[in-house]
Nucleic acid binder design. Sequence first.
DNA 1: AATAATAGGGAATGACTGTTTCCTAATCAA
DNA 2: TTGATTAGGAAACAGTCATTCCCTATTATT
Lengths: 184, 184
Amino acid sequence: MDTALDGAVRVFCERGYHATSIGDLTAAMRLATGSVYKAFRDKHAVFLAAFERYASVRREQTRGAAARGANGRERLRHVLLSYVEHSQGSEGRRGCIVVGSAVELSAVDPVVRARVNAQLATNESFIAGLIREGQADGSIPRHVAADDTARLMICITQGMRVVGKARLPLDGTRLVGVAMKLLA
Amino acid sequence: MDTALDGAVRVFCERGYHATSIGDLTAAMRLATGSVYKAFRDKHAVFLAAFERYASVRREQTRGAAARGANGRERLRHVLLSYVEHSQGSEGRRGCIVVGSAVELSAVDPVVRARVNAQLATNESFIAGLIREGQADGSIPRHVAADDTARLMICITQGMRVVGKARLPLDGTRLVGVAMKLLA
DNA sequence: AATAATAGGGAATGACTGTTTCCTAATCAA
DNA sequence: TTGATTAGGAAACAGTCATTCCCTATTATT
């Protein structure tokens, strides 16, 4: 069942909600029409489940990237690098369900909008926490405004997914090198 | 006819391509079904025209914002401030056709992808130009990497439209204040 | 003034959508 | 082994979609 959801995640990432038909879903999930509707109330419920799965996988990946750093500053650097990498290549072209949902659905679907906001808030406070860790361990100056910088970094990460989907190449080292000036 | 296109822009911004029906379009353009198909070959052609109109209006607005600054650094600051303002409030909630197209269509529609890339490239080189102007007039240090910084700023602006559509509030002064550190 | 040409409007159409229903096959309990 | 319960699949259904066709009103021309 989780492998079926992974298929749903893939196709929803790539085409978004409206352009994904039940036929696309059954193909990607390797399930027949009836089976999908036995497991989920409707297409919207499949989407919500796929969103939740995607979000939890991405949260874990981001936390894993952070763990690779020795102090707050390095943890944040690895998080940004991880975002660049996920925004590139085939995964970048496939796209991010959170960004897709924000753009395609959040204007008309309050349930999806709430999930998007929750995911953005979680990411933002995770980043703000890393900044504060860095300030505590001395790797980031005290005068850095943690909340404002975190919000700008959310803009950066979401924006990277947009330009990654448009297939603009991103150089991780150089881009993150510039972005780290925000911690000066 | 241009006022009809403005209506198409509005509804395409808000709902995206697939979620916008011909009925939505006729209502927003205040034209009957047949009239839409007399003026445009199909829905896709309406979208392309709306995209082009939106892009040219936005280009002009961005250039206008830049003109409010006295040197390269200030021009860039006004451009960023203008982006924050356009990403907020009712216009922010409505959304950006470029971001919407990148996310919803660029994976499957090469024509749209080309337009998106062109618009991103134009914006990016405009920003890079402003950085170089600032370096020439002394308001921006020489060691700033113009191209890398411009690409990161594109990520920032596109990301602002994403979080603006998700209705996260953005404080222009504070956000841009942080972003200007990229020019240090 | 009469006629040709065109722009605009609205109903009809066929394809495709999400959803439901019903049937088959498999799994588990006794 | 038999019976019951459930997972899975294919076809049918109602509704909506983009598109086309044809009609009306307006404008321009002679």
